[in-house]
């Protein structure tokens, strides 16, 4: 009976055994996306999941586990078996939540970064009918009024970056108008309902079409999708960089061989010419980091967003 069951388990390919890097993956791999289908993380996970499935003899499935700003999925993966078969796909939210939430029932230390290959910088834009011109002129225009800015929601990178910019860097009174998702925030700007929108890749096609007036982008270099928009650094706000990224994580204590295997596989997929072009067109910036660099990047991000979160006094309980 035992042998029969073992044979059946082997045949169906779902047998569990000690996780070894050389025979990884020996069963199906689950990508747990921390957000609902259709978003940034989900789209990315599906691209990578599909290509991983093509490379490996084992199926790769994508499971959405949205909730509590990405914390539900992060917590569930952090307590999963550290065997490389449960992978968290999440965004900047992971770094932000470490300081935004008053209490979390997991820590970033319980996760190991595999790869953080793509990011899209935050940028701010206005409706051309509301305001034409550059950032300097906008700040002058904003004197004596309160800038209403639309974002994807409270605690999103777009929200924190914009609020940090207005409160700390530009010292301009502002009021946050949270929407449910970046698309609706962009819509509010397109309809000239708010003074300004802060968003990552969501605004880029509209800026490119001159439906929105891009003021500045929070990256080290200008973005290919909207080359006319200057960086904050060019405008005198040196060092103000904020991007929303997507990253892959496994539970801490996952064997380093598996982490390396995954890191290489994901980076190689992103570097495939067709995939690379696709991602660049949509407005992502790509970076190849090994697992150790990804870990350091996560640490730096937690630190950076922590500074912004504390500076503006944002908190969620």
């Amino acid at each position: 009976m035992r042998r029969l069951l073992a044979a059946a388990a082997l045949l169906t390919g779902f047998a569990t055994g000690p996780a070894m890097a050389q025979d990884y993956p020996a069963k199906r791999v689950t990508l747990v996306v921390a957000f609902a289908p259709g978003g940034f993380a989900d789209t990315f996970a599906r691209i990578i999941g599909q290509k991983l499935g093509e490379r490996w003899p084992q199926p790769v499935i994508v499971e959405n586990r949205a909730g509590a700003g990405g914390n539900t999925a992060a917590k569930s993966v952090s307590t999963a078996a550290p065997d490389g078969y449960t992978i968290l796909v999440t965004t900047t939210a992971l770094a932000i939540n470490q300081s935004l939430y008053k209490k979390l029932d997991y820590t970033a230390d319980s996760l190991t970064a595999i790869a953080m290959p793509a990011s899209s910088p935050e940028s701010i834009a206005t409706h051309p009918d509301k305001f034409k011109g550059g950032l300097k002129e906008f700040l002058a225009w904003a004197k004596g009024r309160e800038v209403t800015f639309a974002t994807a929601g409270v605690g999103s990178g777009s929200h924190l970056a914009a609020e940090y910019f207005f409160k700390v860097l530009a010292k301009t009174p502002s009021a946050h108008v949270p929407f449910r998702g970046g698309a609706l925030a962009v819509q509010a700007a397109l309809g000239n309902q708010v003074d300004l929108v802060s968003s990552s890749f969501g605004v880029m096609p509209h800026v490119a079409e001159r439906k929105l007036n891009g003021l500045a982008v929070a990256s080290a270099t200008r973005v290919a999708a909207m080359p006319d928009v200057p960086t904050f650094a060019e405008l005198g706000f040196a060092g103000f960089e904020a991007a929303s990224w997507v990253g892959f994580f496994v539970p801490a204590r996952t064997p380093s061989g598996i982490v390396t295997t995954l890191n290489r596989a994901i980076n190689d997929i992103v570097a495939e010419p067709a995939t690379e072009k696709q991602l660049l067109d949509v407005g992502y910036q790509l970076a190849r980091r090994d697992a150790a660099q990804s870990g350091q990047f996560l640490k730096a991000e937690i630190e950076k967003w922590g500074v912004m979160v504390r500076a503006i006094g944002a908190t969620v309980d």
Partner: peptide, 15 residues
């Protein structure tokens, strides 16, 4: 749909 088919507690069997 990701629905677990059969799990036998105490063993490795899980579909």
């Amino acid at each position: 749909q990701p629905i677990p088919v059969l799990i036998v507690p105490g063993t490795d069997i899980a579909f």
